[in-house]
């Protein structure tokens, strides 16, 4: 018997965690539990990112998703968590349909995942020989417009993509700004109005 290849071991570990908690999110009825499961699932996914050599993205995942987005979500949960919303039942019929469709979707996706022989992984020697580089610097350079990973590209057609992601980065920045402004506007504290008034001035309210 050959020795255990630890990255593979961790892969199975993390994927098991993330998959099972994803299923947990799906099956949980309580919204608070869902949020908790989601945190774990996403954290395990971050682990998978690390394993795949995407350390920076993994870190971002942990920070932004697990640290930021989810905290936001949990705030949302707490703000809206009244007794009657914590557990809301879905009808059995919808469950069955959803599970059937989901099963089919999963079947198709799994089938696709297994379809390409080249995706089945390298042999162990090659994998151990592969050098894992830190990606933070190349990513930062990429966002600033320089693709350090492709500087020595000889192929003319590929070199076209060397301009990096500066422009995209800018757009995303602006987009983020707009979105945050919008979110702040939408969620601004308003005087809570009664239903009658809402009905009467429905068009003005928005």
């Amino acid at each position: 018997m050959e020795s255990i290849y630890w990255p593979t071991f961790f892969f199975w570990l993390f994927s098991l965690i993330s998959c099972s908690f994803a299923v947990g999110v799906l099956l949980a009825r309580n919204i608070v539990r869902m949020a908790f499961y989601l945190v774990l699932a996403l954290a395990a996914t971050a682990g998978l990112f690390f394993l795949a050599g995407a350390d920076f993205v993994g870190a971002m995942q942990l920070m932004i998703y697990v640290g930021g987005t989810l905290v936001l979500l949990i705030f949302g949960v707490m703000l809206t968590s009244q007794e009657r919303f914590i557990e809301m039942k879905t009808s059995s019929g919808e469950w069955v349909v959803a599970l059937l469709l989901g099963g089919m979707l999963l079947g198709i996706l799994l089938q696709a995942a297994m379809a390409v022989p080249a995706w089945q992984g390298m042999d162990r020697a090659a994998a151990e020989a592969t050098k894992v580089e830190k990606t933070a610097t190349p990513l930062g350079m990429g966002l600033l417009g320089v693709r350090v990973d492709q500087l020595d590209e000889q192929d003319e057609s590929r070199r076209k993509g060397m301009s990096g992601y500066l422009f995209h980065f800018e757009i995303v920045s602006v987009h983020l700004l707009v979105v945050l402004v919008g979110a702040a506007y939408l969620a601004r504290a308003k005087r809570k109005r009664g239903r009658d008034e809402l009905a009467g001035t429905g068009s003005n309210a928005t």
């Binding site: 990255p7 593979t8 892969f11 199975w12 995942a113 080249a118 992984g121 042999d123 162990r124």
Partner: peptide, 14 residues
């Protein structure tokens, strides 16, 4: 299962 590296397929499955 544990002694060989995983591939893209496995990630895609997850």
């Amino acid at each position: 299962l544990l002694s060989e590296p995983v591939g893209v397929s496995h990630y895609v499955m997850v």
